[in-house]
Design a protein around this nucleic acid. Sequence first.
DNA 1: GCCAACGTTGGC
DNA 2: GCCAACGTTGGC
Length: 164
Amino acid sequence: MTTSTLAPAPRYWLMKSEPDECSIDDALAAPNATVPWTGVRNYQARNFMRDGMQVGDGVLFYHSSCPEPGIAGIARVASGTRPDPTQFDPASPYFDPKSPTDAPRWLLLDVQALRKTRLISLAELRSTPLLSQMRVLQKGSRLSITPVEESEWACITDVLMRGD
DNA sequence: GCCAACGTTGGC
DNA sequence: GCCAACGTTGGC
């Protein structure tokens, strides 16, 4: 007996975006509400995209480095990975002169925004006992992409159904 | 602007 | 391979 006939386990992620760069509204306004997730320049986050994320995975769209950091929307992974073109663009803030064109260091994937939610602030996340283990809330966590447990996803969608 | 925490770089 | 210095992240 194998699990090959079963659907893959659902996976969930939190992805940080600076709303000045790409807010949930910006993503929803994009063609097909889909944006290429450029600018990931951390190997661990890249590896999550490359090795862990699958089309259809749930995404918590998180606004960071802004007056009101927190979860601002729900999205989904909409593609597999491909090289991030901004690494080769000298005019881009994400330019990486050390990335060989024939062996690109940095990848991106497409993220499709599904809906804007009320903002679940960082303070609210921190004050929710069921979310105390969330990777993004751990001390010193700086990763722009972090895995989310199914129980954490369920807790957040419950919170949204109650107040949203 | 501050600063804690983390990742990367490079000399040795 | 060690580790100090440096750069970045991101909340406050």
